[in-house]
Amino acid sequence: MMQPILWLILAAIHAMPALAFFRPATLTSLYRLQPDNPLFLLMHHRAGLFVAVFAACIWAAFIPEGRKLAVLVVGISMVSFLALYWQAGSPPALRKIANVDLAGLPVLAGVAWLAFRQ
Rank of each mutant, 00 (worst) to 15 (best):
A47L: 03
I5V: 14
A61D: 07
A47E: 02
M78Y: 07
L10V: 03
H45A: 15
V51A: 10
P91I: 00
V71G: 05
L41Q: 13
W7N: 05
L105Q: 04
F50C: 08
L42G: 14
G66V: 09
H45W: 13
L8I: 11
F116R: 00
A11F: 07
L39P: 04
E65N: 12
I5A: 15
M16E: 14
L33V: 06
Q87E: 11
W113L: 12
P64F: 11
W113D: 01
A61G: 13
G110C: 03
L84K: 00
V53K: 04
P38V: 04
L82M: 08
A83W: 12
A25R: 09
A70S: 14
G110Y: 03
A93I: 03
A115S: 15
M78Q: 11
P35M: 10
A112L: 01
F116V: 06
A109Y: 02
P91G: 06
A25L: 04
Q118V: 05
I63L: 14
Q34P: 02
L30V: 02
A15Y: 11
I5T: 14
L8E: 09
A60H: 07
H45Y: 15
A83V: 15
L10F: 06
P106W: 07
A47H: 05
A109S: 07
Q118F: 07
V51H: 08
Q3K: 12
M1V: 12
R46F: 10
D101I: 00
H44P: 06
W113N: 00
Q87G: 10
L33S: 08
S77R: 06
L69Q: 12
L10R: 06
A115G: 02
L108M: 02
P4D: 10
N99W: 09
I58C: 14
L27C: 08
V71H: 03
P24R: 04
A11P: 01
V100K: 02
A47Q: 07
V79M: 12
G110I: 03
H44F: 12
F116D: 05
Q34T: 14
M1I: 08
S90F: 05
M43W: 15
A55R: 08
A18D: 06
I58K: 06
A115E: 01
I58Q: 08
H45R: 15
A61T: 09
R67F: 11
L108F: 03
W7G: 06
W7L: 11
Y31A: 08
A70N: 10
V74M: 11
S29H: 12
A18F: 02
F116L: 12
V107L: 04
I58S: 05
L105M: 11
A55Y: 10
D101G: 07
L105T: 04
L8G: 04
A88G: 09
F116H: 06
H14F: 13
K96C: 05
Y85M: 07
